[in-house]
Simulated scan of single mutants.
Amino acid sequence: MSSALHIPPPYRTIRETEADVVVLRCEDPSVSFAELLQAMGSMSAPVIVVSPRRDAEVVVEVFRGGAGYLVEGDYCTCMLSSAVMAATVGHTYFSPVACAAVRDAARRLPDPGEAMERLRSLLSPRERQIMELLSTGLGAQEIGLRLRLSEKTVRNNLSNIYAKLDARGNTDAVLKWLGAAQGDPIGLTAR
Results as ranks from 00 to 15, higher is better:
48 I>N: 00
50 V>Q: 09
52 P>S: 04
53 R>D: 15
54 R>G: 06
54 R>I: 04
55 D>N: 10
57 E>K: 14
62 V>R: 06
65 G>C: 05
66 G>C: 07
68 G>D: 06
69 Y>L: 09
71 V>C: 12
71 V>K: 10
73 G>A: 06
74 D>S: 05
74 D>K: 07
76 C>V: 01
77 T>Y: 08
80 L>C: 09
80 L>K: 11
82 S>K: 09
84 V>W: 10
86 A>R: 14
87 A>K: 13
89 V>P: 02
89 V>L: 05
93 Y>E: 12
94 F>R: 11
96 P>H: 10
99 C>H: 14
100 A>R: 15
100 A>I: 02
101 A>E: 01
101 A>L: 03
102 V>F: 04
102 V>S: 06
103 R>F: 03
104 D>Q: 15
107 R>H: 10
109 L>P: 01
111 D>G: 09
116 M>F: 10
116 M>A: 13
116 M>Y: 14
117 E>L: 13
118 R>C: 02
118 R>H: 08
124 S>N: 03
125 P>C: 14
132 E>M: 11
133 L>I: 00
133 L>T: 00
134 L>G: 03
137 G>L: 08
140 A>H: 01
148 R>E: 07
158 L>R: 05
159 S>P: 00
160 N>A: 15
161 I>S: 02
161 I>E: 02
162 Y>G: 01
164 K>E: 08
164 K>I: 11
165 L>E: 08
167 A>D: 04
168 R>A: 02
169 G>C: 02
170 N>W: 00
170 N>V: 00
